[in-house]
């Protein structure tokens, strides 16, 4: 029995494939999904989505969003998903530097900076 994994971005359906197991990059750590998991809705963080398919492992960078598990269907809603091979380490490092230079003088600004730093770190981790 396999899991159907669907990754949807606002522009198009990025991935729609069968997998033996899926590892989701959640907001506070990874979650592995095997067939027959209980229904779940989760908040995604910035990180790598691992798919173990019959054709071999596949990895995608996921830019926040949500995951929903229902039956044997895992659907991910994210604003951006890129195959890990297409990520650029240099650009990710640059993004991290920019994020770290952001001002954090008020709680709101600090929160925005925090999100930007986490996104850049996630991207860098995936790129490596």
């Amino acid at each position: 029995m396999a899991i159907r994994c669907i990754v949807v971005t606002p522009e198009r359906t990025e991935v729609d494939c069968e997998a033996d197991s899926v590892t989701l990059p959640m907001y506070d750590g990874s979650v592995g999904i095997l067939p027959g998991r209980a229904p779940m809705i989760g908040r995604l963080g910035f990180g790598t989505l691992h798919l173990a398919t019959a054709a071999g492992p596949q990895r995608y960078f996921v830019d926040g969003g949500f995951a929903q598990v229902e039956g044997n269907v895992v659907s991910l809603l994210t604003s951006r998903s890129i195959s890990v091979d297409l990520l650029d380490v240099g650009k990710a490092e640059e993004a991290l530097e920019v994020a770290q230079e952001m001002p954090a003088s008020t709680p709101e600004l600090a929160q925005l900076k925090d999100t930007a730093v986490r996104r850049a770190r996630g991207q860098l981790r995936s790129a490596r």
Partner: peptide
């Protein structure tokens, strides 16, 4: 449904999205 990490945290993200 099980909410990970919590329903509030998901809501926090749903609204801006």
């Amino acid at each position: 449904y099980e909410f990970l990490p919590s329903a509030e945290s998901i809501l926090e993200e749903v609204v801006p999205t």
